[in-house]
Design a protein around this nucleic acid. Structure first.
Lengths: 149, 149
DNA sequence: GTTGAAAATATTAATAT
DNA sequence: ATATTAATATTTTCAAC
C-alpha cells in the first residue's frame, strides 16, 4: 500500500469504469502494471468489490432515518445481526458505545413505511425502545478517504 | 423502471465487473439489450456511478463514529455544507429533525484522531456542542434495497 | 428487442529493469 | 519484486434488422 495504490483507489472510487490504460495515466504506469496493482488490491481485500451507486429516491427509498435501539440485554451477538439483516429497509447496523445498544440506518419509501419499520425493530428480541432521527436533507455521502491522516 | 431494471440494479450492486452477456443472463436478455438498459439507467441518474468499495481499516480509517452536532443557528445552508466537505474524515453529513441540527458520520485512524475531528467540528461557525456515538462493531453496511416495498 | 461484426479493452505471457 | 511491451482473448459498442 504505497502512494500509487492510494491514488489508484481514489481514482477507482471516483470512476471504476475507466480503462486500465486511463487509470495508469493517473499514476504514470502502463495498463499491464496497473492491472496487476488492482488485482493485488482485490486479492488483499483492500478493494472489497466493484459496485454501482444507486439513487435511493429513484428506487422508492427517499426517506432516511437513523434509529437508536435500546435493549434490556447485550445486542452485539449473531441472532440480533440476523434479525436486522432480514429487514430490507435496514442498510446499516452498528453496535455502539453511548446512549443506546445499536444504531441502525433505515431507508424507506414514506414515513408510514418508516413507522412500519420501527414496529419491526421493536419486535426484535430484547428491544425495549427506539429513538428516531429523521434526515431532512443529506449534504453528502461519500466514500472513505484513502489518504493517510 | 420495471422489474428487469431492478434485477439489473441488484446484480450490478452485487458485482459491477460482470460482462453484459452474464448480466443479461440474469434477466433473459441479450448483451446488446442489457447494455442499452444500463446506459439508460445511468443517463436517468438511477445509477449515479460505478465505484469500488474500499475496506476502511485497510486505508487507516478503522475508527468510526456518529456525531450529533448542536448549533445556535440554522445549519442547513451551503456554508455549513462546505465546511464539512473540507474535513476528509467526514464521510456523511445530514440535516436532521431531532435532538440536534446535524448528524455526521466520521471515519478516523484512531480515537485520538477522532478527538481532533471533534475539535474541528466545534470550530465550525454556529456549532455549540457535540454528542458522540462511537461504533464498537458494524454488523453490516449494504447498498439500498432496490425492490419495491 | 436480436444478431453480428468492428473497435476497444482486459488479460496473459515473455522479457527487461 | 515490479515494470514494460506485445500477443491473444473478451468484451464493449454500434450497426442493421
Amino acid at each position: 500500500m504505497d502512494e500509487v495504490d492510494r491514488t489508484l483507489l481514489a481514482e477507482l472510487q471516483r470512476d471504476a469504469t475507466q480503462a486500465y490504460a486511463a487509470l495508469g495515466q493517473a499514476v504514470g504506469l502502463s495498463a499491464g502494471a496497473t492491472h496487476e496493482r488492482v488485482r493485488k488490491l482485490r486479492e488483499q481485500g483492500v478493494i472489497r468489490r466493484t459496485t454501482v451507486d444507486v439513487d435511493p429516491a429513484a428506487v422508492g427509498r427517499g426517506v432516511m432515518a437513523f434509529v437508536l435501539v435500546e435493549a434490556n440485554a447485550w445486542m452485539g451477538d449473531s441472532p440480533t445481526k440476523t434479525a436486522l439483516e432480514e429487514l430490507p429497509e435496514v442498510v446499516e447496523a452498528h453496535v455502539i458505545a453511548g446512549p443506546a445498544s445499536l444504531l441502525v440506518k433505515v431507508r424507506t419509501s414514506t414515513t408510514e413505511e418508516l413507522q412500519a419499520s420501527l414496529r419491526r425493530l421493536f419486535a426484535i428480541e430484547g428491544v425495549t425502545g427506539t429513538q428516531t432521527i429523521v434526515v431532512l436533507e443529506s449534504f453528502f455521502e461519500r466514500p472513505v478517504d484513502v489518504r493517510p491522516g
